[in-house]
């Protein structure tokens, strides 16, 4: 989000335990107005005040884009992460006031597609829930292949199956059911676009298989937000603002800058969108480039850093903020 972009003051109206790992949250505007409509695949950034630590996590919207009465997200609890999902799971209750960004779509449908083929793994189902609702309303052609650990942990699987019937295919790891990707890709009509959202390994597998089978690169779309990894504390000099700050183990560099009153642009906060890209003036040490944005050459040259997910170890890091 650009600094100063509009935000949406909301109240939590519903918290539903979907299964052992996933909770669903519904937000409505505090002033009772309608939410903006959005495009399937969009996310919002949820701002949290976690006992003095400001967390801003992106979550895909899963409610129907045409439903302007409220937004819904699903959050998978990550017990070893930095705490954003734990905060959502343990502290967020109906009636609580929170702040959302406007929707941003980094995983849009290509509206030219003759058919949309969707591959979801686990919690990666959420953007597809909104996209299918939008395609259904517009009469678009789609097919979902959704892989999950077990029936008990397969969020929304039965609801989607009941609603979309033979356009939804379910696969349970525990029952040794796996997507037959090669045959699936082989049988698609010309003009099909392929979308994948799920764990890193699944995205790599789908992309590699599609490439191997000659799918055009621009017909394959994926989204993977990275949670900023935890690590050791490190120090950074901010050249433009003349400050030296310390990034705590469970804090990202972007969050540390914000906590020190240095505003930097952002959209996804997950290493995907490129908005927070920052020049490195001096790097005497090693940058852990955790993003999907910089090229391998840029990463190797240490001339740029993505403060939302990347960390540093060494004697000195000076960046242009």
């Amino acid at each position: 989000m650009s600094v100063g972009a509009p935000k949406i003051p909301v109240v939590v109206t519903e918290v539903v335990q979907v299964n052992d790992l996933i909770k669903r949250f519904r937000f409505q505007r505090r002033d009772g107005d309608a939410m903006p409509t959005f495009s399937g695949g969009a996310h919002v950034v949820v701002e949290m005040d976690d006992h003095g630590t400001r967390r801003m996590n992106p979550y895909s919207l899963m409610s129907a884009p045409s439903d302007t009465s409220g937004y819904e997200i699903s959050v998978r609890r990550d017990d070893v992460g930095r705490g954003g999902s734990l905060y959502m799971h343990t502290h967020v209750q109906p009636g609580m006031e929170m702040v959302l960004s406007h929707p941003v779509n980094l995983f849009p449908l290509d509206n030219r597609a003759k058919k949309h083929l969707m591959i979801a793994g686990g919690i990666g189902i959420t953007p597809f829930v909104a996209q299918m609702a939008q395609l259904q309303a517009m009469g678009g052609r789609f097919e979902l292949h959704y892989s999950m650990r077990s029936p008990a942990l397969g969020a929304y699987a039965q609801v989607l199956k009941a609603h979309y019937d033979d356009r939804v295919h379910l696969y349970y790891d525990e029952e040794k059911q796996f997507i037959d990707l090669k045959n699936l890709l082989k049988g698609q009509p010309l003009g099909t676009h392929l979308y994948v959202c799920g764990p890193k390994g699944m995205i790599a597998w789908v992309r590699a298989t599609a490439t191997e089978m000659g799918w055009p690169a621009l017909s394959v779309h994926s989204e993977e937000f990275l949670a900023p990894p935890v690590g050791k504390a490190f120090e950074v000099q901010l050249a433009a603002s003349g400050k030296t700050i310390t990034v705590a183990p469970n804090q990202s560099l972007l969050e540390a800058m914000e906590a020190n009153g240095v505003e930097a642009p952002y959209l996804c906060r997950g290493g995907a969108c490129g908005q927070c890209e920052t020049e490195v003036h001096r790097c005497d040490g090693h940058i852990d480039h955790n993003d999907h944005w910089l090229t391998d050459e840029q990463k190797a040259s240490n001339t740029k850093i993505m403060p939302c997910v990347s960390r540093f170890a060494g004697a000195a890091l000076v960046i242009d903020r």
Binding site: M1, A5, H102, V104, G274
Partner: peptide
């Protein structure tokens, strides 16, 4: 172009 690709709804 870089600026416009990130243009946000409502802004």
């Amino acid at each position: 172009l870089k600026f416009l690709l990130k243009l946000q709804h409502g802004a």
